[in-house]
Nucleic acid binder design. Sequence first.
DNA 1: CGAATCCTTGAACACCTTCAACAGGGGTGG
DNA 2: CCACCCCTGTTGAAGGTGTTCAAGGATTCG
Lengths: 245, 245
Amino acid sequence: MSRVPAEIARLKIQCKDCTLFQLCLPVGVGAADLELLDRIIKRRRMLPRGEHLFRVGDPFNAIYAVRSGSIKTYTMVEDGRVQVTGFHLPGELLGLDAINVDRHPCSARTLEATSVCEVPFDRFEELSRQVPALARQMFRIMSKEILHDHDMLTQLGRQSSEHRLAGFLVNLSERYGARGFSRREYNLSMSRTDIGNYLGLAEETVSRLFTRFQEQGLLQVTRKHVRITDLERLHSLAGLGARGR
Amino acid sequence: MSRVPAEIARLKIQCKDCTLFQLCLPVGVGAADLELLDRIIKRRRMLPRGEHLFRVGDPFNAIYAVRSGSIKTYTMVEDGRVQVTGFHLPGELLGLDAINVDRHPCSARTLEATSVCEVPFDRFEELSRQVPALARQMFRIMSKEILHDHDMLTQLGRQSSEHRLAGFLVNLSERYGARGFSRREYNLSMSRTDIGNYLGLAEETVSRLFTRFQEQGLLQVTRKHVRITDLERLHSLAGLGARGR
DNA sequence: CGAATCCTTGAACACCTTCAACAGGGGTGG
DNA sequence: CCACCCCTGTTGAAGGTGTTCAAGGATTCG
């Protein structure tokens, strides 16, 4: 499903909010060094919905940053079924899990029309040798990713389906909020099937939970659009204090 | 429960197998630089069972590497209940999730008598400025951690309890194997309660699954000791190809 | 030896999945 | 522009899987 142009514009992220830009911004990198970084980043064309950014086993060359749109990562399990491993929103990075193994351990596919920046990793490493603050900032970004994954493990370790979905929605809320978007209102770019797959729940259960949350006055949902009316209660239902990405 | 000395000796890891040592070993760091790294690492005393290495909210000063023994990390969820977020075996690192937030987002507690190395992170960052290969290696280690977390997310996203426990056991097998221990035989240092908590299952379910796996000839388990008799089938039950930490 | 903890097993119930049918939108082609 | 079709999402009913509650056995440690 394609989005109307206005929606794409709404999702477009400023460079200063981009995770990649955090590489240079807060650590006192001089303008000259910043220019060097800017030079190695490739800006890619807009990818249409359903396009692959990379596939399992592809050689690792670059890290990608989502500029607008969204991407899901997934792997195949033995019996041929798909397992969704994550969703990536504007301002977030992909490919960090491939650095050590030199091949992408998952596939990445756009959930909507999506624009990404590409950072060739060898050139980045080389540059970070000249600009140590870059390395320092990359440590922070990777640490953030690890923290986020640990948060998700906490969510998925919980038993009840309510906890899981509430946690998922709160997590999205935090991530959108951190990028300057609304915490209370956003579009789900992924299908119910993907959400269920990610959370270890059946698609039908996800659907029923949305209905139940709505009946309980926690949120309003129409198709992909979610408006959270009681973020407080959704938080406590998730069972975790606020902890963004 | 305390271990007999022989067992502690068996778990003691050589520096060359240690994740931290990978910081210098494979990337052509000269002996002089290696000496510099060695100098900032503090070797700590043996911690008894049940001791805290750090607690939620503690200021982040250092990264820790497990030399022998094992450690669990956990957080508190809102209602006061505990959520286990990970287990750390010899040769693995703790604290990577704290770099960006400067405070530990989880508590770490020894599951048995455990010895750790402590790497003050500010001194490490400083050193990595002089020795770029160190930064490069740290990228790899953090990437490995991210990959491992993604693997665990894949495991926990699966619905059936069999998949989850099998995946957990295979994961342990891989991690022990990568450190030079047996892939088919190891001791679980964590309780059934901890395993269940981690996997989002009831303690009783874990217990029953162990019994069932044993009946199916997949493994033999007596209390903490696990001997995997059909690693092949356990792999396929886990639903993932072999993918170590 | 006794207490505490950990693990196991049993039975009832709740929750979630599965199977099935249907509704609603969006996109395509006439 | 409309009709049709396909895909996604919703809802219902039945069945299975895992939890909960409960009790008993095993191991460790004071």
